[in-house]
């Protein structure tokens, strides 16, 4: 029996009057990669942002239902959003490094937590760069601007930056959609290695990518969760007609 990390029950989300997520229920296993697929505007990115309450930052969003992480409802009034986001890292579609040095980007999450000890900062920087398979490429220029790196390196640095605060869950919103095939392969390899330590949820447009990196796949369409199963099952023998049409490329 696999361990459940995130469990969502009957979740609805509205942007003003428009309902963007309809009655979503899903159980996401610990230390596995779960992929969300579906056509543009199907709500998969919105749902990803539900999991670390990034939607709180948008006005006029209304929600209903519960999201349990290890049994605790993160939409409970007593939950501190800042602490929540420290436990749930996020990597965005386009690299959003700060215009600071590589090192300063890496330790940003620690610095805002009040960690000043140079030794701890240095060790974390090295450890997370190695985790993100970036150490060999940048170890001699940690104090150069992060924006001087290539696109693929920047995105891996974003992942390293997210890992530096030692989250339990890493959310990735189309992390490779703006990258070339070689950089994409590196990111996918990285995701594969990270799942031994972290629970990973990845949103992707690219179905081959979902098939390659994920253990579980959820198919979203028009704000609904249509089908959720083992990745191998979704791509070879889906139950629903809509899922089959999408994964075989008949629409979307």
């Amino acid at each position: 029996m696999k361990e459940v990390k995130i469990s969502v029950n009957n979740f609805d989300l509205y942007y003003g009057e428009k309902q963007a997520l309809k009655n979503i229920s899903i159980e996401i296993p610990a230390k596995k990669v779960t992929a969300f697929i579906g056509p543009s505007g199907c709500g998969k990115s919105t749902f990803l942002r539900v999991l670390n309450r990034m939607n709180d930052l948008i006005d006029h969003v209304k929600i209903q239902g519960e999201v349990l992480i290890e049994g605790v409802n993160i939409y409970d009034k007593q939950i501190d959003v800042v602490n929540l986001r420290k436990r749930i890292g996020m990597v965005f579609q386009k690299s959003n490094l700060f215009p600071k040095t590589i090192y300063e980007n890496l330790i940003y999450g620690l610095k805002i937590n009040g960690i000043r000890d140079k030794k701890v900062l240095d060790e974390t920087a090295e450890k997370t760069l190695k985790q993100a398979a970036l150490w060999n490429e940048v170890y001699d220029r940690l104090h150069e601007p992060a924006l001087s790196l290539s696109g693929g390196q920047q995105q891996r640095l974003c992942i390293a930056r997210a890992l530096a605060v030692e989250p339990e869950i890493v959310l990735m919103d189309e992390p490779a959609s703006a990258l070339d095939p070689l950089s994409t392969a590196k990111i996918e390899e990285l995701i594969h290695e990270l799942k031994t330590k972290y629970t990973i949820v990845i949103v992707t447009h690219n179905m081959q990518q979902a098939a390659r990196v994920s253990d579980q796949t959820a198919f979203f369409y028009l704000g609904e969760l249509i089908e959720y199963d083992k990745t191998s099952k979704i791509f070879t023998n889906p139950t629903k007609k809509q899922t089959e049409d999408y994964v075989t490329g008949r629409f979307g």
Partner: peptide, 27 residues
């Protein structure tokens, strides 16, 4: 100052004032 930079900061568990002080104001 791009919204994506604010998102990155919030995503790492920064408070609003930390985001303004460390990310928004320097830029």
């Amino acid at each position: 100052v791009p919204k994506t930079h604010r998102d990155a900061s919030y995503g790492l568990g920064a408070t609003k004032w930390q985001t303004i002080k460390h990310v928004v104001l320097p830029q």
